[in-house]
Design a protein around this nucleic acid. Sequence first.
DNA 1: GCTAAGCTCTTACTGTTGTAGTAGGACGAT
DNA 2: ATCGTCCTACTACAACAGTAAGAGCTTAGC
Lengths: 129, 129
Amino acid sequence: MRLPKLSKLELQIMEVLWDKGPTAIRDIQESFGPKGRPAYTTVQTMVYRLEGKKALRRARKIGNAHIFEAVISRDAAKARLVDEFLSLFGGRMQPVMAQLIEAGNLSPKDVSDAEKLLRELAARKKKDA
Amino acid sequence: MRLPKLSKLELQIMEVLWDKGPTAIRDIQESFGPKGRPAYTTVQTMVYRLEGKKALRRARKIGNAHIFEAVISRDAAKARLVDEFLSLFGGRMQPVMAQLIEAGNLSPKDVSDAEKLLRELAARKKKDA
DNA sequence: GCTAAGCTCTTACTGTTGTAGTAGGACGAT
DNA sequence: ATCGTCCTACTACAACAGTAAGAGCTTAGC
C-alpha cells in the first residue's frame, strides 16, 4: 500500500502535519476551529488509523504525549487525489478540465494563472518533442 | 437531498442511463465489460439505492422487468463531484488547477482545449462586468 | 505522596459502499 | 399445465469512515 487512500477527515489531519510539522494529537484537534471540531478521541482514532495506513508515524514523545509526523508527502497525496478524481471521469482529462472551467467558480486571477500554467506547459511539451 | 452524493459504482451506473437512456438492470450490468463485472444483484442493489436517493426512477415495465431512467442530470452530478473535489483542496480553485495541470497527464490537445475554454470564459466574464 | 489534568488504549456504534445469495413470482415455450 | 429462465425483493455481511465514551496510566504541581 504505497499510497493509501485518505478520506476527507484523514486529509485534514495530514494537512496539519504538513503545515506545522510534527504535532501532538491535542494540537491537531485544536487546529480545527473551535466550532464543529471533532472530539479529541475522534482525532485520535483517525491518527491511529493513519498510522495503520503508514501515512504518519510516531516521531517521539513529549511527556507522555506522542508527537506524530507525516510519512506521506503532500504532493504524493494530492497526486493520488487527482488520480481518484480523474478515474471518476473515465480517466479522460479533457472533460475534467472542461467541467472545472465551466463550473464557474473561477476568479479572473484563477483564469490568468491557469492560462499561464498552460502556456508554460505547452512550451515545455514542445521542447520535449 | 437535492443533489445526493454518488459513489463511484453509482456513478458508473448513472453513466449507463445517461448514455443509453431508460435501461433495465440486466442491460446496465452487461454494459460493464464481461471481465470484472459485478453480479446482477450487486447492480440491482445499487440501482435500488440510487432509487432511494432519487437519482433515478422506475419509468415503466417491460414484461416483469423494470426500466429505470435518470432523474439527476449528468451535468448536475458532475458539478457535485467537482464541488466535492474542490472541498478537499480547501475550496480554493487555483491549487486544484495547478495540481491538475502539473499532473502531467495532459495531451497537447487537452492543453489547447483548456486554453480555448479559458479564453472564452475570460471574454464572457469581461462582458458580464 | 496525593490529586487533578491530560494522554493512551480499547471498545463500540452508526452509516455507506461494495458485494452477493436466496426465495419466490412471472412469463414464455412446449 | 409445466418447467426452466429471468426478474424482483429481501437479507446479509465485510470494510471503511466518522463519531465518541470509558478505563486506566503519567505527570506536574502542591
